[in-house]
Amino acid sequence: MVEAVQVQLKKGVLELCVLALLSRGDAYAYDIASRLAKGIGMGEGTIYPLMRRMQTDGLVETYLVESTSGPPRKYYKLTDRGCESFSSQKSEWADFSAAVNDILGGAQ
């Protein structure tokens, strides 16, 4: 069970990062992928399955924007459900990381 919790936690963090990026503004997949790859070392290819899953779950939706260079870009934006999910996941993360930091701080 511990392993399952760990796995869920990490998976949740990736999703949380995408939700956070999108909460600051709509973005297209390449942009999200390169920012996450730089930030937390996430493989760029994994963003697409993740975005599809989030779309299936109704957390994000897409729209096309004409691009000056090349074909139109597919932008992702948070749905209302995505916004709710972001704020609840964010506070869960804050509580959790504060608790972990507490324990780490006390164990020097």
């Binding site: 697409y48 074909p71 870009r73």
Partner: peptide
């Protein structure tokens, strides 16, 4: 189409196709 767009963006950003493919996994 998603991955095609990814390659197009990457090339526009000055990366080679091989680099992009490697980063995709």
């Amino acid at each position: 189409a998603d991955y095609q767009a990814h390659f197009a963006e990457g090339v526009a950003a000055g990366r080679t196709e091989a680099e992009i493919a490697a980063a995709l996994g």
